[in-house]
């Protein structure tokens, strides 16, 4: 069963990552120095950690926010959390524990040189 579990986690991580990246104000995920990641067969999803250690699923999201003077980071984190939860609901993942959100960096000016 461990193989099945690992597959599940990477699927979950991929779905969460996709949902989070669509949230306006998120410049990227998993770009920080201490970003978490989920590993699966032949792939890595950076910036989203999925842990099942304590029964319910714990999600850990590390993101880079787009800088803007009007940005409210705790509020952004809340929207990210909602997006992640919606993605988990779509996958019919029951028993979600906490969704931790870490704003680990800010990006200024939109695009990278």
């Amino acid at each position: 069963m461990p193989e099945h579990a690992a597959l599940d986690e990477i699927v979950i991580a991929r779905a969460v990552a996709a949902a989070v990246q669509r949230v306006p104000g998120v410049a990227g995920i998993g770009q920080g120095r201490h970003a978490t990641a989920t590993y699966g067969p032949n792939q890595v999803i950076r910036g989203v950690g999925v842990t099942r250690a304590r029964g319910p699923l714990d999600i850990d999201i590390h993101l880079t926010a787009a800088y803007g003077a009007a940005v409210d980071l705790p509020e952004l984190a809340e929207r990210v959390r909602e997006a992640a939860r919606a993605a988990l609901d779509d996958l019919s993942v029951e028993e979600v524990g906490g969704i931790d959100v870490t704003v680990e960096d800010l990006r200024v000016g939109g695009e990278q040189p």
């Binding site: 705790p74 984190a77 959100v101 704003v103 960096d105 800010l106």
Partner: peptide
Amino acid sequence: RATDLVTEHGRTTIADDVVAKIAAI
């Protein structure tokens, strides 16, 4: 609101570096 905000849905953390960057800008 706070940099380290804990709710029943999870914890929100804002890295010190982010606060420093905001101050720098």
